[in-house]
Nucleic acid binder design. Structure first.
Length: 220
DNA sequence: ATATCGATTATCT
DNA sequence: GATAATCGATATG
């Protein structure tokens, strides 16, 4: 068994307890972790930008109006994928948080591609000419879903703590440092809440404006 | 560099 | 019928 490709460390899945916490806590803790697709060509990418949504008490959250056919996964057990379709064009990926009955979640906003770059480029319909093109693969909630082939039919409700079954989240020993906080992007309610988290060191892969006006460095 | 705008459809009022 | 947790293209400085 030769360790052929890049000598990437072993990736261990996150357990249910990891997600059974407040969305703010899970959001921070997810930075630096790895999203893995393993039901086809293997894809891995590091989580570098996320947003927390706080459930029924959060006016900007899909769960604000209670449980519906679309968002029911949010009210289920933690660690499951909530995938929704938006603007007639894009899918977005979230992971449910908190105990069953509470609807908090974390939105995946940007990743740093690690493995399977050509597959991601093909799925995104972009050409990889150099390092400058890498952010085009997974910088943005819609883009990362396209790169990973994430759709509602395929992935909504999937248990993200289970390796070998398609889509899951793991850790490879990377230690997140330099976490910044800012208001969330693209919402029209509760716009002031500082619930967007991203890694300064990975800013090239973070979506939107590089320097957010009210971003705060929390020096971790 | 930032600003504005159109695409396109599931979901909810 | 209106809206939306976006993206890519176009226009302008």
């Amino acid at each position: 068994m030769g360790k052929s490709q890049t000598s990437s460390p072993q990736i261990r899945p996150l357990d249910r307890a990891f997600f059974n916490r407040h969305p703010r806590t899970v959001a921070r803790a997810l930075l630096g972790k790895v999203l893995v697709r393993d039901d086809g060509p293997r894809l891995t990418a590091r989580i570098v930008e996320v947003e927390a949504y706080l459930g029924i008490e959060d006016a900007a959250a899909h769960a604000a109006a209670g449980s519906t056919a679309r968002n029911s996964v949010l009210f289920g057990p933690p660690g499951h994928a909530y995938v929704y379709f938006i603007y007639g064009n894009h899918y977005c990926l979230n992971v449910s948080c908190e105990p069953e009955g509470r609807a908090g979640c974390v939105l995946f906003r940007a990743l740093e591609p690690i493995f399977g770059l050509e597959e991601m480029a093909h799925a995104r319909g972009v050409e990889l000419r150099g390092p400058k093109d890498l952010p085009k693969l997974t910088s943005g909630p819609g883009r990362l879903c396209a790169a990973f082939g994430i759709t509602r039919v395929r992935d909504n409700g999937h248990d993200l703590t289970q390796p070998g079954s398609g889509l899951w989240i793991g850790e490879d020993g990377y230690r997140a440092r330099g976490i910044q906080v800012s208001p969330r992007i693209g919402i029209t309610k509760a716009v002031e809440q500082p619930l967007r988290y991203f890694l300064t060191a990975k800013s090239a892969f973070v979506s939107g404006r590089k320097r957010f006006p009210s971003a705060v460095d929390t020096r971790v």
